[in-house]
């Protein structure tokens, strides 16, 4: 029972004071004597869409999991510093590389996440319908989630996360397994969620996707945070040689 159990949380506090910024100080993560993340210092603020960029194995997913609280850093601190920080646990959600849906209907998948937050049944149904509407999945509501295409499944995962009304939404390579058309649909859904005021923090190794979605770039290489700057500035000419090589496509992702 060593794994820290996250206790069930009270119903969503819609709106409320912000939990951001998220501040990471000297965050290190090591496993088997290898440093996977090395003294990462990072501040994530409200408003901008942040894309964590870097080649495979740079530590992007681990960084995201530390931010979301799924992994504890070996050393260093991670802290929500906004006025609403005590509510941080329920004000964030995450979408993973694979949709990780339950073997039940599309709407039941969304309903499940809301039930965990102790929302009343009537409210749940309304909210779940809204979420499916947002993701363009309303006609598929009663279908078993398992029979949907990969792209549709990932949009269900997005709808499930959105339904929780998070202030911060983490996305870990959400389109890595999708074809271009499905990728497009998922990106549109992400952009829509961002327009609603949700802070997006997303990892990708896809430069095109980063250009389309990012307002801010965090560049990781070999577990170290090399750059954090506006997307425009980053793509105009990053300071680090590794980042430049990555942009030239010379760093194998």
């Amino acid at each position: 029972m060593a794994r820290p159990a996250i206790e069930e949380q009270p119903a969503i506090s819609a709106g409320g004071p912000s939990i951001l910024p998220l501040v990471l100080r000297d965050v290190c993560l090591s496993a088997g004597g290898r440093a996977l993340l090395d003294r990462v210092n990072l501040v994530l603020t409200a408003g901008v869409r942040t894309v964590v960029l870097g080649p495979n194995g740079a530590g992007k997913s681990l960084l995201l999991r530390i931010c979301h609280g799924l992994i504890s850093p070996s050393s260093g601190t991670m802290e929500w510093t906004g006025p609403g920080a005590t509510e941080a646990r329920v004000r964030q959600a995450m979408v993973f590389q694979r949709p990780m849906l339950l073997r039940r209907s599309v709407i039941a998948n969304v309903d499940y996440a809301l039930a965990v937050r102790r929302m009343s049944r009537a409210l749940r149904t309304t909210r779940a319908r809204e979420a499916l509407e947002m993701a363009g999945l309303a006609p598929l509501a009663e279908r078993p989630a398992g029979v949907l295409s990969g792209g549709e499944q990932q949009r269900v995962a997005l709808a499930r996360a959105w339904a929780l009304d998070p202030e911060v939404l983490f996305l870990d390579e959400p389109t890595a397994n999708l074809d271009p058309a499905a990728t497009r649909a998922v990106e549109e859904a992400i952009a829509g969620i961002a327009r609603g005021g949700t802070k997006i923090v997303m990892t990708t190794h896809d430069l095109g996707q980063a250009r389309r979605l990012a307002e801010e770039i965090v560049f990781l290489h070999n577990g170290r945070l090399l750059e954090q700057r506006s997307a425009a500035a980053f793509f105009a000419g990053p300071g680090h040689e590794a980042a430049r090589a990555f942009l030239r496509g010379e760093l194998l992702w």
Partner: peptide
Amino acid sequence: EQLRSLGVGT
């Protein structure tokens, strides 16, 4: 991970 992310208890 998904369940923990959703805040599902043991």
